[in-house]
């Protein structure tokens, strides 16, 4: 993934993906009382995906060129747009 400067869109997409994955019906696919490698399937999948989400947040939250601070001193565009 490149630095696209569209982290907000990405974060919303990840949020939706999380909701989709942690909610039925996808949830019910792996919600079975079976052991895989000696661990419950749902336990592995839920914690695994949870960890992936955390990694994704950390990846998105690292300091990048997109810093919010530039918005502090910006003049509200609506106020001055009519002035030449």
């Amino acid at each position: 993934m490149k630095r696209t400067g569209r982290k907000r869109e990405w974060s919303i997409a990840l949020f939706c993906a999380g909701l989709l994955f942690f909610f039925p019906p996808i949830l019910s696919i792996f919600d079975k009382p079976v052991l895989v490698f000696g661990l419950p399937l749902a336990y592995i999948v839920l914690y695994g995906f949870w960890a992936l989400v955390i990694i994704a947040i950390a990846y998105g939250a690292r300091r990048g060129p997109v810093v919010r601070d530039n918005s502090v001193s910006r003049i509200p565009p609506s106020k001055y747009k009519d002035l030449p």
Partner: peptide, 23 residues
Amino acid sequence: GLDFLPIYLGPTLVFVVWSLVLA
């Protein structure tokens, strides 16, 4: 069983969009 987990998955999802809401 695993019913206790939503209480922690919910906050994780909120922190996904931290830059939109929390910030």
